[in-house]
């Protein structure tokens, strides 16, 4: 495993921990999109169907369990926990996530490497992950008032995707036959979605002012 991949996984892990910290400790999910969190739970549930059948490494299995466990517990917190539920900004989180799930499913049925259930589900999870952040970005833009933890959560998620791109470039040059168009194009699309957010996040940090997004 190269350094980019490890750093990518770690920023992904940090993003989840930041969100759990906010929800578990402060008992608030203000500014967090439940739609995006439900999409991530679906992403991990469909991608890690191989968790008990294909053993890669202890690292892989543990990380998969963490991402599955954390994504479902975040959804549980936001839907069921009395205090957390109260801070959920339901009126602004109106993105219709079915509009993302269905096209991704159709695309996975059309474009995949192998036509097997596991492979199509895996491909679906790759496509869905690329766009799963959209409800969150829309919510940020609508609420305008972005607290530090929410900003950091989205920043670390974006950093994870950018580092994975560096990981793919590295692997392409160091491993034979390492060509994965589906993952690369989806990953690139996903990273580009963060570009706008990154621009405002970094300029607010440089100018030492509170992060706001233009309407």
């Amino acid at each position: 495993m190269n350094a980019f991949r490890l750093a990518g996984d770690m920023t992904h892990l940090i993003s989840v921990l930041v969100l759990l910290l906010k929800i578990h400790t402060i008992k608030s999910c203000a500014g967090i999109s439940l739609k995006t969190q439900e999409l991530y739970a679906l992403v991990f549930a469909t991608r890690y169907l191989d968790i008990f059948t294909d053993f890669i490494s202890l690292y892989n299995t543990v990380m998969k369990l963490i991402f599955l466990g954390s994504s479902f517990s975040i959804v549980w917190y936001m839907r069921r926990h009395k205090l957390v539920q109260r801070s959920y900004d339901k009126d602004h989180d109106t993105f219709r996530h079915q509009l993302l799930v269905l096209p991704c499913l159709i695309l996975a049925l059309l474009i995949h490497e192998q036509f097997t259930f596991k492979e199509v589900m895996w491909t679906f999870s790759i496509y869905l992950e690329a766009v799963a952040i959209l409800p969150q970005l829309v919510l940020l833009q609508r609420t305008r008032n972005i607290d530090n933890l929410t900003g950091q959560y989205v920043f670390f998620l974006g950093a994870y995707r950018s580092l994975y791109i560096l990981n793919w470039i590295y692997r392409y040059f160091t491993e034979p036959h390492y060509v994965h168009w589906i993952t690369w194009i989806s990953g690139l699309v996903q990273t580009l979605l963060y570009a706008d957010f990154f621009y405002y996040y970094i300029s607010s940090w440089k100018n030492n002012v509170k992060l706001t997004l233009p309407a």
Binding site: D54, M63, E113, Q114, Y164, E175, H177, Y178, V179, T183
Partner: peptide, 10 residues
């Protein structure tokens, strides 16, 4: 490519 390589990623 069969995609076996990529499955070691998360």
């Amino acid at each position: 490519s069969s995609g076996t390589n990529v499955k070691d990623e998360l």
